[in-house]
Write a protein that binds this DNA or RNA. Structure first.
Lengths: 220, 220
DNA sequence: GTTCGTTTTAAACGGTCGTTAAACTTTGCC
DNA sequence: GGCAAAGTTTAACGACCGTTTAAAACGAAC
């Protein structure tokens, strides 16, 4: 049986996951070393293998801990909007909100872990390791299909490739923004602050929805 | 004096740069090993140090070879449009074309090296190593400033943060699309093909320009 | 053909990596 | 207490990494 956490301090598995998340954020999946991780987690090296089997196993656990709940939030929010609409097509603004808000909220978590979580999202986009990619491709497909169906319902005149491309563009803009929050803030001299979730959400919705609505008029 | 290339075969520096580019595309900057690179380039390990000084030096050379010309193309295309407009504001479609076409053309290069070049772009977005980041931050700032100035001229009513965010979103969508061309094509079952440069360019311009034009009416 | 600077090679250095096997400590249960 | 299971630590293995040194091969100039 696992040892109970010592009141304030999280248990070993959690400490390892937190440390791994930070390490991945800072150095990428390949560059994050187990020895650095266990040092920050104040845990012995072999403990990682006892709980997670291997480095890849640990990486998968890190991803599942964050992106499992994220997928559920995506589908739940979209489902809530669809239930309220009772079969009628959703305004693209609501579809965009269901796409964007869960990741943006995740990015605005507790300051200590904020950068780790956001950069983690960016790392996945360009991750070469197929074992790590595979963890997320399945659930990404499910979420993408759900949003695509909603968009097709709202914009029946739009062609499928036009919608597919636009969904990719929205994901890309989101991933890029989340990827290096500090960099954007610096390069725009503080004008773009990712921690202001509501602002960013509004900005993105205002930017993207006209491009979707243009598809409603003529086939695109 | 450097040995002349043997007609068909590129010289050693070029072979190393090509191999390094492929390796980075496949495994990232940290994961790309010099021993793999020199094996593919059919060159001795120490040759890398003779020509490039270190691994970081090689990485910098790889980036400069591709993104130096890219920066020039960006500024040249924007300059051409501005010269033709003779001081009048540019339509956002032209500004977007100057932002998007050079990278898209670069991505449509010779098939053998295509994936390497496109994935290289994606890697940079999430690169942790500050030495590598630094190579591109300077020239990125210059290009961003040029496009921002053009946008401000065309959309004088738009607020600065609104424009800054939108520029980031466009870069993000572009980088994401270029990052893993094969993945998008597979996940959309072939509907999204990045090699069709004209299609992708038209799709992006049609998607983004309404979001920019919306800023022309009321302050955003 | 010898000489000199340039280019290429072979071999090794120290270090870090992921991983494993076995010994050790703790914990819950009779 | 004694025992088995769960958890933790120690210590080491082999592999690969970036880097350096010094010697060999080469090309042009005289």
């Amino acid at each position: 049986m696992p040892k109970m956490p010592k009141s304030s301090e999280p248990d070993r598995q959690t400490r390892i996951l937190d440390a791994a998340e930070s390490a991945i954020a800072e150095s990428g999946f390949a560059g994050a070393s187990l020895r650095d991780i266990v040092q920050e987690a104040q845990v012995n090296l072999a403990t990682v293998y006892y709980y997670f089997g291997s480095k890849v196993g640990l990486m998968e656990a890190v991803l599942k801990r964050r992106f499992g709940p994220l997928r559920q939030e995506h589908l739940a929010m979209l489902g809530k909007f669809e239930a309220a609409a009772r079969g009628r097509p959703l305004p693209v603004e609501q579809i965009l909100e269901a796409m964007l808000l869960p990741p943006l909220r995740l990015a605005a978590k507790a300051p200590a872990k904020r950068q780790a979580v956001t950069r983690l999202i960016g790392r996945i986009v360009t991750e070469p390791n197929p074992q790590i990619q595979k963890v997320l491709t399945g659930q990404r497909a499910e979420v993408r299909a759900a949003f695509l169906r909603a968009l097709q319902h709202s914009l029946p005149k739009a062609s499928l490739p036009a919608l597919l491309w636009r969904v990719e563009f929205v994901w890309g803009a989101l991933a890029f923004a989340l990827c290096n929050p500090g960099k954007i803030e610096i390069e725009t001299h503080g004008a773009c602050d990712l921690t202001k979730t509501d602002e960013v959400l509004a900005e993105m919705i205002h930017f993207f929805s006209p491009g979707f609505r243009a598809l409603a008029r003529n086939a695109g």
